[in-house]
Each structure stands twice: as C-alpha cells, then as structure tokens.
Computed example of a mutant assay.
Amino acid sequence: MMPGKARSVGILAVVEVMTMSLWFVSAAILPELIAEGDIGHFRAALLTSAVQIGFVLGALGMAVHGTPDRIDPRRVIAVCAVIGSVANLALLVTPIGGVVQVLLRGITGICLAGVYPVGMKIIVGWGTKDRGLLVGLLVGALTLGSALPHLFAFLGGTNWRVTVAGSSALALVSAGLALMTSLGPAHAQARAFDPGAIRMAWTDRRIRLAYAGYLGHMWELYTYWAWIGAALAVSFSAQLALEDAQSAAKLVTFVAIALGGVMCVPAGWFADRIGKAQVAKISLIVSGVSGLATAAAFGGPVWLVAALAILWGASVIPDSAQFSALVADSAPPDRAGSLMTFQTAIGFTMTFFTVQAMPFFAQAFGWQAALAIMVFGPIYGIDAMRRLIRIV
C-alpha cells in the first residue's frame, strides 16, 4: 500500500476496533446483569436486540438519506462514536434491565450504524483491485472490536462495570482518530438526495444475489455472536463447576470471535485472486459444517466443544466482507455507500428476530437444537453464491 493509503486504512481499522467494542457489552456481561438485576429472559435478550433495532433504524435512515455518500464520512463516524460512548457509559447509572437501559442500547445501535457501514464507504474509496482485502481488513477490525467486551468481562470477573467503562473509553478515543483519516482516490460523493438509489438492490441481479448471500450469512452470524457464550457456559457446566464453566465460556467466546476477525484478512487476500463470491461460498460451507459439529458435540468434553466453537467463530465472519465488496463492485461509486448501508439494514432487521428468539428456542428445545438450526442460513447463502458465481 502507498504510505497515505496504509496510514488511513490502519487508522480506520483501529477506529472500528475501538468503536465496535460497544456492540456486545450487554451480551458479555449478561450473567452478571441477570444475577444483580434479577431480569428475565425477554428483557435480557432485549438488551442485545435493542442494539440490532437501533442499528437497523439508523442504517435505514442513512441509506435513504444517502448520508455516507453526501456527508464527509469521517465526521459522521466521529459524532456517532461520541454519542455511542456516552449512551453506553450511562448504563452505569441506570436501573439494570430497565426501559432506560434498553433505550440506551438502542441509541448505541443507531450510532454504530454511523460507524460500520460508513467506514465501508471510506475503505472502498482506497482501491478497486484490492477491495476484497480492504473490506476484509475493516470487517476483521469490527470483529475484533465486537470480541473485546468478552475479554473485558473475562478480565473483570464479576465486576461488569469494568466492561462498560472500558468500551466507552475506547469509543471516545476513536472519535478523535476518525478525523485523522483521509479519503481515497476512488471516493465519490453524491451531489443530491436520491432515495431511489437503493432500487438497484432489486434491479441489479448481481447486487440482489449479494444481498441474498448476506441474509443467509446474517441468519447465523449475530445469533452466534450474541449467544455462543451462553450456550458454551451450559455445555461446559456438564463437565465443570458453574463458575469455572462461565469463565471458560467467556474466554473461548473472545478467542472464537477474535480469530474470525483475524481470518477476514487472508480471506480478503484470496478473494481478490479467486473471486469474492467463491471465498464467501467456502466460508459458508465451513461455518455450516462446524456449527453442526458444535451442536453434535454439545455437552461433551470441554476441549472438543471449545475447539469446534472456535473453528465456527473463525469461519462465521470472513464472508461478511465479501458480500459488501460484491455490492461495491457492482454499484456506481457515488451510490455504493447507500447500497452497502441498506444491505446492512435489511440484514440486521432479520437478526433482531433471530437474536431475540434464540434463548426461548433454547429453553424449549435445548441449546443443542438451537445451535443446529443456524445452519439454515449458510445453506441459503451457499445457493445464492453458487448462482452469483455463474454471472460474475
């Protein structure tokens, strides 16, 4: 990479790591919140789902308005990072699991819609031939950020406030760093308000299939990220004392999600050489198979379940970057930001239902069955990529 490009891409990656640490704060500290606040399954799930809802509302609004294409994306990220940091920090002074906390998590989600897809608008402006790698770097960064709350929770033990304060501090610092990035030579700005730009999601078959693959991917991804820690704690408790099982589940969850972030980089490098749809298809196959294997081994030896869950985490995210890169490749440069933002909006709309329903499904049928049903997402995504490969 040229020096200016490497600097901007590197800073943007750090910004994504820091700010996206806000996402899974409530999921990482859920056992402590339930114990201290005495909240039920519905409210516990809602603390995580509220982020999804907020993200969808924010992403839809920005996609229709064309925010990533019309306003300097660096400023959008900085403002959203500050507001998200404050909203997250307010969890420390509000009733646990109450309406205010749910609303605060929703506000955090709205703010993150101004970080993740807007960051993709910046990154695709830095290249076309290496776009798979560039978007892979960005998604890898946000994945590492999403894993950080689990590390904070592991280090902080039962003191959940350490996790909240740590993620808020990182997000606040990231706001300043966002303003230090530069826009690349392929960056294009839309001159006018054009909500009709998102019609291309239906009229362009390549974009439509990329969206379809993304939906299959999202059926699995955020359900895994939100609940694998809780599922592993139950599985490990068959072999370990409850406190040891919960601690081990936090550590394995961090490793699994973080490794997925690392794998986004080589996946992006291969995507620029063998094809983005091909890499997405391979990732979906591996994640689907490893998900079924994790379900089959549930409750068995801790080392085996942990290893399979880590393999699942390593393969569940690398395809995400390629769905976005496929959209960027097919869209006009001055509409790519809106189309990628809209892509994330419809994907996260679905995750609200999957994330919210998972603990109830697990309560009714067990975590083993709950993990197994995630495979329907990869199956759908694989079919979409198979068809896309034929026309790209």
Rank of each mutant, 00 (worst) to 15 (best):
D272A: 06
L221F: 10
Q246I: 13
V234G: 01
V265D: 03
C264W: 00
A197E: 11
L215R: 01
R208C: 06
A197G: 14
A192I: 12
A230M: 08
R206E: 12
L242F: 10
F193H: 08
C264G: 11
T253L: 03
S235T: 09
G260N: 05
I257W: 00
R206N: 08
D244Q: 15
D194N: 14
M218D: 11
A258P: 04
G196R: 14
G268W: 00
L215H: 00
M200W: 06
L215S: 02
D244L: 12
S247L: 14
E243M: 11
Y214T: 10
G268P: 07
G213L: 11
F254N: 04
A267F: 04
A210H: 01
S237P: 05
M263K: 04
L251N: 05
P195D: 08
D194T: 11
Y224D: 06
A201F: 05
D244A: 15
F193K: 04
W219Y: 14
D194G: 00
T223R: 09
S247C: 00
R273P: 13
F270Q: 03
F270N: 02
G261E: 06
A238Y: 14
L240H: 02
A201W: 01
F236E: 07
R206V: 08
W219G: 09
W269I: 12
E243Q: 12
A231E: 06
A249W: 00
W227V: 10
L215M: 14
A256C: 05
I257E: 03
V234Q: 13
I228M: 15
F270C: 05
F236V: 01
I207C: 08
Q246P: 00
F236C: 08
F193P: 06
L209H: 09
D272T: 02
M200Y: 07
I228V: 15
V255W: 05
P266R: 10
V262E: 03
A201L: 15
F254Q: 09
L221C: 13
L240F: 12
